[in-house]
Design a protein around this nucleic acid. Structure first.
Length: 199
DNA sequence: GGCTGATCATTA
DNA sequence: TAATGATCAGCC
């Protein structure tokens, strides 16, 4: 990670997240472990507008396309990643210089029974499709709160996946993402509804 | 303005 | 190369 604050995030898309990992002493780096290993806490910076609502979806995890048919909800990356999350809202308004963006009040969160059920419902549908070899039928339109979208260097990237005929083929790598409607509710649950900053 | 598909840097 | 951290960019 560069030490200088970038002018914009076009070529430093993960800069804010890496900054907080460093400042807060996260230990896992790019391993498949919670950011704070012995605490079981995942750190997520969340870009927000001036009114506090999320600007972007939240990446959760990559999808093991060949294994989805054998994975249960409790063993899934989505379930494990989202057991405990420290959400750190950060101003993401593009017109605001990165160095001037303010940090919101962080929130240590675990899914409520309702949220857990909502995520599981979407996961069962999406994972089920992949497990049945229908990964190519997935679009970002599916899933109420959880969605599947490309997660790759570019549109030419390929990873082995299960086809409908049971044979492996080369597919665009995908990841699970949380919709902004889901993360917006998380913040609303913690901070008073209707309370908005001036201007 | 919201949303989906595309893309970028860094690290192991 | 694949997984991590995400935001960009353009269509609707």
């Amino acid at each position: 990670m560069t030490t200088a604050v970038p002018q914009d995030l076009r070529r430093a898309k993960g800069w804010t997240g890496a900054l907080f990992e460093r400042c807060l002493g996260a230990t896992a780096r790019s391993r498949a472990l919670p950011d704070f290993e012995h605490l079981g806490i995942e750190l997520k910076t969340l870009p927000v507008r001036l009114d506090g609502r999320p600007l972007e979806t939240t990446f959760v995890c990559t999808i093991p396309l060949l294994d989805m048919a054998r994975i249960e909800w409790e063993q899934s990356g989505v379930f494990k990643k989202l057991r405990r999350v420290l959400w750190v809202p950060v101003e993401g308004t593009r017109s605001t210089p990165v160095a001037a963006r303010r940090i919101g009040t962080p929130l240590l969160w675990s899914p409520s029974p309702e949220e857990d059920a909502e995520l599981r419902f979407d996961w069962e549908e999406l994972a089920g499709m992949i497990g049945r070899g229908r990964v190519e039928d997935l679009t970002g339109h599916l899933g109420r709160y959880l969605q599947v979208r490309p997660k790759a260097a570019d549109s030419h990237a390929r990873r082995r996946a299960l086809g409908a005929d049971g044979a492996a083929f080369q597919a665009l790598p995908r990841g699970f993402y949380l919709r902004t409607s889901f993360t917006a509710r998380i913040l609303q649950r913690a901070f008073v509804l209707g309370a908005r900053p001036a201007r």
